[in-house]
Design a protein around this nucleic acid. Structure first.
Lengths: 329, 329
DNA sequence: CTGAAAGCGCTTACAG
DNA sequence: CTGAAAGCGCTTACAG
């Protein structure tokens, strides 16, 4: 079973390999009937061009890399799906490279990825979207990239985002409406721009209600379950504990929920708990979590679209979020 | 910034490109000092060979594909991690292709993957590990593959697995020890070999305890949360409901847990619930789930190792499971 | 142990 | 609108 090549298609269609190449790449200036003959031959022979050959000859790899360092498998998985949804339309493959931002090898690994696989573009998710070293490397290598949920330096590259500040303000307002006055916040890690954005929204809502944010009611987590539980322990041990907790991620909210259960607290009567993201997890825990829907798959799709359509560096695309009220508040 | 090529390395080290190629591929018959000169030049020039060129010339792609169709992001993500852990040792990349086994395009898409990307090997996860059409296609294309948790046709290809029957028996025995006599089972979908294996283990434990399995206490789900909830509704509506439910996956167990909470049942007093897998989710719900630990990442690592080490088709590797008792039983 | 030649399957640049 | 030539950066087969 020898491989069918462009040469076979040229022979079968009575044209040259250059013409077949033109049809393959949807170039203009191919006669209608010539195009048709080539397309028939492609179908008849079940010809599929070799990525390796196209990459080598054309200097493009037909590959996009998702470069991420995120504690949530659900997030990364949804990102992969959204990116793939968009990329497969263009016949582009997706390479997922999870990194450890703490690793001293981060830059070297990323550089190696670029040198060996030569992706046509890169999609950066938080916290890498705001990592100066990574940003500098991509600029030096002159490789197109898109940022998901960046915090600073708008205009550096196209980006997709949700209005984190607004969303957090809406969620906090919901807790205020429920009558809560002592509302705690479990913030995300410092190097995520989204952490600060969500915290700003939380504080803005409190201020708008005439409540001064208290440092003691704000604890920093790592966006994961364990840190949410740790933070909740701290908050609930407070002499005058909060009646509501707004966690910056659903996983942290789930951790807080676990602690509340362990302490025999009734939810939401004794303590209301809300998250952020609307991961599948938010619907799986008891009681189901009030949260903000962050459509990760859409964010990813738009990011891939920005990349493949070669958007201008200052193009920003907002994806709509939504407050989702469930039984935990 | 022109790309550094093998030719530059040959010039810098005073050898030929063939010798550089030998060093790169760790071939034998290279003089010690020649090797050293080449290695120094590689390091000095920061040379990284092009995957595209190596693929085209060598007929290998340095790429392995994970071909899966699984409802659980956590499972797929853990598989990706384990495979990548092993592959990066050999400088091999991982392509993840999620498929829809219900799709009429499944085979065509898989065939296209093979034709365009030409992976050096493929890893199949359930239920694709037992899909006859997929198996036939891979055989026809003569492409090496490894199966994760296959059910039948041992010897067709190397495989990794956990002892599902034993594990399910142990879990059910645990429920029996807790005093339960009416133990229900939410089984996985029919096309997963693991579904039948777990069910067999469940029935064997009952029989060993002198209890005849009842058809009405066995409901089929889809391994996901929603189907677990649906199955639990059916089971708890039974005139003589079970006192314990063993779900074939953690997600289904979480669904059953949700239904129990909605009905105001105390867990495990009114109803005990156990899952299978020990996904992160199992520790996130309340009460935490008793389950069987299935080390997916290890299964994946071993699968990749079997592939990269060109294991014989009859090589099987068992990965150890473990009963994990928590508060839900 | 080492190297010169040919070729993998495409695309690029150049002609016509 | 179409094609012949050169070349992408490596590895394979073949010599020595």
């Amino acid at each position: 079973m020898k491989r069918v090549t462009i040469r076979d298609v040229a022979t079968a269609s009575g044209t040259s390999i250059k013409t077949v190449s033109r049809v393959l790449n949807k170039e203009r200036y191919v006669g209608a009937d010539t195009r048709e003959r080539v397309e028939r031959a492609v179908a008849d022979l079940n010809f599929r061009p070799s990525f390796a050959a196209r990459s080598l000859a054309g200097g493009r790899s037909f590959q996009v890399a998702l470069v991420c360092d995120n504690p949530s498998p659900a997030y990364v998985y949804a990102m992969q799906q959204g990116i793939r949804d968009r990329c497969e339309v263009d016949g582009v493959r997706v390479l997922t490279q999870p990194y450890d931002r703490g690793s001293p090898r981060l830059l070297a690994d990323l550089d190696a990825l670029i040198a060996t696989s030569g992706p046509d573009g890169i999609i950066l998710t938080p916290p890498l979207s705001d990592n100066d070293d990574v940003l500098a490397l991509l600029a030096a290598r002159a490789i197109p990239f898109v940022r998901v949920s960046p915090g600073t330096r708008a205009g550096l590259a196209p980006a997709t985002f949700i209005e984190n500040v607004t969303a957090a303000r809406e969620l906090t307002a919901h807790l205020l409406e429920r009558g809560h006055r002592r509302i705690a916040h479990i913030a995300g890690p410092r190097d995520y721009a989204t952490s600060a954005q969500r915290r700003v929204g939380y504080e803005a809502a409190l201020l708008a209600a005439g409540i001064a944010p208290e440092t003691e009611l704000i604890v920093e987590g790592r966006y994961d379950f364990a840190s949410g539980a740790e933070a909740a322990e701290v908050l609930l041990a407070h002499p005058s504990p909060p009646t509501a907790i707004f966690a910056g991620s659903d996983e942290m909210a789930a951790g807080a929920l676990m602690v509340a259960h362990r302490r025999g607290l009734r939810i939401p009567t004794d303590i209301a708990i809300a998250g952020f993201g609307d991961d599948a997890l938010a619907s799986y825990v008891w009681p189901p979590l009030t949260t903000v829907r962050q459509p990760v798959r859409d964010l990813a799709w738009q990011a891939a679209d920005l990349l493949l359509s070669r958007a201008d560096p200052d193009e920003l695309r907002e994806v709509a979020h939504a407050l989702v009220v469930r039984a935990s508040t």
